[in-house]
Design a protein around this nucleic acid. Structure first.
Lengths: 332, 332
DNA sequence: TTGTAGGCGTTATCAC
DNA sequence: GTGATAACGCCTACAA
């Protein structure tokens, strides 16, 4: 593999000068610089990041820990973070943890050996002790989507509780009283908080959900089954803690011969692209996914460089997107 | 940052012995080994991959180049590859290129400086010269989803042409004669091949598509617009070159008051999770996305290690998944 | 303006 | 069994 030495030989000079042109540091005569640059171009030479890191340079590596990227919400999030980070000069390890603390721990060990400069994580709920080694080494951690207890240096987490309230309130405002709730994965902190928020809002009206159905995985098929269970309790409206859950519910209702929103109102959460492209179009609470990813990248960058000039963006707000799956209940 | 030296001091021994326990090489007495292991555990020490690479070890790094991961097809693909690769001992840089050769080139330069051991790529169509430096260094490249002309060491690319034929044939078998085609992104090799295949199948029946609508981006909204254009030509059936395209078309048809499949048949391609969860459920050609990802990972591993014992899996077949969006046309 | 040399963390080679 | 040590590729004093 070509090294700085190869280039030096090619350009008939010393490694120091090559390093100087590579880094635009110190003095190099125009003539020498030209020779060196041509040698670099010829060889397609790229200096070894490893040697640079070893020498004491920053790694410009960051770890991104997400439950998955085969679910669109996280795919969008991952891509937006990776792009923003790349533009800031970092390269990312995007890791899918399947909500498993064991997997997270494995990836954390990898981050350590790769000397990542920072981590962005949407961690599984069950304990976060495996983040301790990162903290011990002063490696900044930005929590995204879910809090990380004492381990995060910064948190980009929307107000899931409020989100839950908004869903419930919308249905309440429409006049619904028999409301069911479903969602997954049940161990996810965001799901739990939305659930808590929704229940709280119902509670304020002296109501309780007629059924709460929680599942393990983030997929349509399971949501469909949960919805079948929920619908057995004859709600007039249904809260999907995610759009996936809500869309699964639309299908379950359809197969039961229910008309939406006439017989059943459904509201979701996230506003993933599919939400606007199901029939009927899904009413949902939108979170600005890409925007959150960009903010997380910026914050991590700020933490890594300790550069106070990077601005602290406020978290964008949640918005109710009213589409075609919610309406007042039929008067009894 | 703790190093092997720190551990040696802690365990009152030399770096050589620490290295020996780290790598299970050479002789270490049980007593010494215990001391060293405890020092390692105490410190949460992880040896620097950079130093290992520098020393001449393999980097165990691989680059994954995909147009995006915010589109579910690629998100699933990326995750399956990353997982399989991680289990094989590799860490991946998952990079979203937005179908841009310039972006690809930037990532390739990064791969070079990071000394990746291999690359998996679904490249944009426009030329692949920027892969030359990888080839020059003998870094294996596995093409996935799309061929890479002369640059790939191996190719995991389904027969898109056949896929196109299968879509057309299904509609032809049903009795359709006025068939429109839509899809995106139009510069994608896979899209072009499916289109070619579909046209060829129509041609064998002496037919031509009544309309071909191609777009730039992989999203529902654009597909919706394309479908509006296509439907102006009054086809009885419509081929979506991707499920995204087909789902956009379902909505366009719905908004035009068309009943599916009575007034219009629609077939898609890929069988992404949403395909089974739109109404009506989408008939489509399934490609086993995860499986393809696993195969790509295996093949790359084989190329990196040149270990002939890794089996060559055959590419899995395409299957028609008949759901509810296709039916015979209404007799005129 | 250019060149020489040391050291970053690791492993392999060689002595002891 | 164990411990020095050279070398990997790079950057940065420092010397010339």
């Amino acid at each position: 593999m070509a090294s700085i030495k190869t280039i030096a030989t090619l350009a008939q000079t010393s490694v120091a000068s090559v390093s100087r042109v590579l880094n635009n540091s110190g003095y190099v005569s125009a003539a020498l610089r030209a020779k060196i640059e041509s040698a670099i171009a010829q060889t397609n030479f790229q200096p070894s990041s490893d040697a640079r890191i070893l020498r004491g340079g920053k790694s410009h590596l960051v770890g991104i820990l997400l439950p998955s990227i085969d679910v669109q919400f996280f795919g969008i999030l991952a891509q937006s973070m990776e792009q923003a980070l790349f533009d800031l000069g970092y390269q990312s390890f995007i890791c899918s943890t399947a909500e498993s603390a064991a997997h997270e721990a494995r990836y954390v060990a990898m981050f350590l050996s790769r000397r990542v400069g920072g981590v962005i994580a949407a961690s599984a709920e069950a304990g976060a002790a495996h983040f301790a080694p990162l903290r011990a080494r002063g490696i900044p951690i930005v929590a995204i989507d879910r809090d990380l207890h004492g381990y995060a240096s910064d948190s980009i987490v929307i107000d899931h509780d409020l989100g839950g309230r908004m869903m419930a309130q919308h249905l309440l405002d429409l006049g619904h009283r028999k409301i069911a709730i479903l969602g997954a994965p049940q161990h996810s902190q965001s799901i739990k908080r939305r659930l808590a928020g929704a229940k709280a809002a119902l509670g304020q009206s002296g109501l309780q959900p007629v059924s709460v159905q929680l599942g393990m995985t983030h997929d349509f098929a399971q949501a469909y089954d949960l919805a079948r269970n929920a619908l057995a309790h004859r709600p007039t409206a249904l809260i999907g803690l995610t759009d996936i859950a809500a869309i699964g519910a639309i299908h379950a209702a359809h197969d039961l011969g229910l008309q939406i929103p006439r017989d059943l109102s459904i509201i979701g959460f996230d506003d993933i692209p599919s939400a606007a492209f199901v029939l009927p179009r899904l009413t949902t609470i939108a979170q600005p996914i890409r925007h959150l990813g960009h903010i997380a990248a910026q914050r991590l960058h700020r933490l890594i460089t300790s550069d106070p000039s990077v601005q602290m963006n406020a978290l964008p707000a949640l918005t109710l997107i009213q589409r075609d799956t919610t309406a007042p209940p039929i008067p009894a």
